[in-house]
Design a protein around this nucleic acid. Structure first.
Lengths: 221, 221
DNA sequence: ACCTGAACACCGTTCAAGT
DNA sequence: ACCTGAACACCGTTCAAGT
């Protein structure tokens, strides 16, 4: 029975257990599960502790803050992002696959988007590994070193913004009472094909971004 | 003395005031100021009420939730975004100016990024006006109606992701102890020019995105 | 209708006491 | 070292009571 067992019986003893009942990895695993099941607001230190069969204060023997938990969760999410195209496919196809996988991962965890944008990569091993595959792939494909990080950040910014956009309600652009003063919005809305509109906008932007990047690599300066 | 006066003397009377002391606009104005002065965590209903010289519960006669306050603040921020290029400049130059102004506005208010991505535009008049200028500008420039909203959303996703990126610490990509396993990241970091790196990545991405969009408009399908 | 003040059901976090 | 349970300083929000 791994630490991931749900709803373990609460400990009744008063003092230090003979063997530790918590580990950093176990906390992270349960935090990911909790985030997946109950969403952003469901991930509280109290709920996490209950899942682990422990008092909330016990968590603080293993993590300093809730932000620590979020950082660990985020590194775990990044572990699942597919970077396998680099070195196997042309750089632009690899970058496109990475961007799609990256967006899919954060579509499932939009609450982590602001965390990802701001958290240093050190002590986040899977995150470092992801960036290493992308950066070394771009370098090997002939991208000038001084542009590589900017390319990565530009694509990442688009991906994270697009991940937030997947949360938008379908009628976000419906001007309601203000329709009379917004004929252009109304026309554009009416002509927009139905279906997965967030994905359509993402694919359009990704395609445009890659076209521009190919041009930049071909004619630098 | 407008409602924006700071630290008014608290009312001491017990019942309904002879004239209302709060208005929706006054609440929004003070909320913007509070967000600007104290940042995301500083904008609490208690702090907002104190600034307005009122008990926290009084706010609930004018707004239903704190989310309401955030939505109003956000519409106010959108009022300041420059859309003046549309109809005056070529569509791509107008779109670039809009994107820069949009990013600048949310760089000052990164906490509003997740709100913006998700909030319906109805009952947000300045936001509708912004989208109207952009949409009608693209339509007038010859963009097919069925692509206009996707273009807007794609650029917006890039802008909002880039706004979050401005919050990142300068050493976010420093692999620390993991440097030995990340030679590509280390090389790219070392070669990246110093200065406003977030802006450099934004300008690179914006340029690439616009190049791709120009190509798409020229050769649709 | 629109305010006050008390109350409710939470938060994340700290800390003394236990083993 | 690593747990419990009580406590602290907050949150956003509700609601009866006042005018």
């Amino acid at each position: 029975m791994p630490t991931a067992a749900s709803s373990p019986a609460p400990r009744r003893g008063r003092g230090r257990p003979s063997r530790p009942v918590l580990t950093a990895d176990g906390i992270t695993t349960e935090a990911v599960a909790l985030l997946e099941e109950r969403g952003q607001d469901g991930l509280t230190m109290a709920a996490l502790a209950r899942r682990l069969g422990v008092a909330p204060s016990a968590l603080y023997n293993h993590v300093a803050t809730k932000q620590d938990v979020l950082r660990a969760v985020q590194d775990d999410v990044n572990r699942g992002i597919d970077c396998s195209g680099f070195g196997r496919l042309p750089w632009d196809a690899a970058l496109a696959d990475w961007a799609r996988s990256y967006r899919d991962a954060y579509e499932r965890h939009p609450a982590l988007v602001p965390v990802m944008a701001v958290t240093p990569v050190r002590s986040a091993p899977h995150t470092v590994e992801m960036y290493e595959r992308v950066s070394s792939g771009l370098l090997a494909a002939g991208w000038p070193a001084h542009l590589v990080t900017n390319v990565v950040v530009a694509v990442e910014s688009f991906v994270l913004g697009s991940a937030l956009d997947t949360e938008a309600p379908a009628d976000i652009f419906d001007p309601g009472d203000l329709a009379a003063s917004a004929p252009g919005v109304t026309t554009a809305n009416a002509a927009r094909p139905e279906g997965d509109t967030a994905r359509a906008a993402f694919e359009l932007g990704l395609s445009a971004l890659l076209t521009g990047l190919r041009g930049l690599l071909a004619a630098p300066g």
